[in-house]
Nucleic acid binder design. Structure first.
Lengths: 125, 125
DNA sequence: GCTTGACTTAAAGTTAACTTTAACAATTAT
DNA sequence: ATAATTGTTAAAGTTAACTTTAAGTCAAGC
């Protein structure tokens, strides 16, 4: 029922070195090891890891993810704080999408008008 | 007609140290200085700088921005290459938006189901 | 005339998120 | 039995994009 680091690496597309780094950084608080020190990832560990990836891929720092995790470990008394963190993070994602759409608009404009005016003023001479 | 580094900092929301760093890194090839070494930004310099910000804010590395700039300086013979770079960058932006939307979906789901199942499996016990 | 504020430089320091290295242990394949 | 594979650790190295520091120049206000 448990997975080796290599299997988890294949499943998450993270290198094993990164998985070890996350563990070492305290991001995998419930991860168990065999008597010889080999990590064994349970379904729950992988589930948490996938949330870590989701938060990281949308720009949350590992420090903030860890803070969120510590709140999770404290139990239901911190649920309001956690909801607050997630709501702030949602805002951050929406802001990032907005910035990207703005840049996308500029790039699209440049591409559409490429032959007319060129990209850099020096070309218009 | 020219702007001081402080004025440009105010306009772009970049600290003066960053503007100096960009210049030092070769990202401002046409920027002039007074006889005493003080930078004077022309409208064209600011225009280019704003494109730099647009590309940087959408995740292009300063190295790639510089490569793009060097192509610009080479003139119209590189326009096809530049178009190619911009098209690749557009793809990269679309991909980033896709990833963010995916994360957003997960966060929204978590927030909607917050009271039902909790965020971390440990809470469900 | 002297201090204050805006500017300069080169060089060193910072931060986040890894990645690499070296040395070693255990498991599996031939 | 031996070689390849998979795993471990601690510690050092890497990269990008800045930021800070120290020491100095120049122009303006009191």
């Amino acid at each position: 029922m448990d997975y080796s680091i290599k299997q988890v690496a294949a499943r998450t597309n993270l290198p094993a070195s990164t998985l070890r780094y996350y563990d070492k950084s305290g991001l995998m608080p419930l991860l168990k090891k065999t008597e010889y020190g080999t990590r064994k990832y349970s379904e729950m560990d992988i589930c948490w890891l996938e949330l870590v990836c989701c938060l990281k891929d949308s720009g949350m720092s590992l420090d903030d993810i860890k803070a969120f995790m510590l709140l999770c470990l404290e139990g239901s008394s911190t649920s309001e704080q956690r909801r607050e963190m997630l709501e702030q993070h949602r805002s951050s994602i929406l802001k990032q999408i907005e910035v990207l759409n703005c840049s996308l608009g500029t790039i699209n404009y440049k591409l559409e008008h490429y032959n007319e005016i060129g990209i850099f003023h020096i070309d218009t001479k």
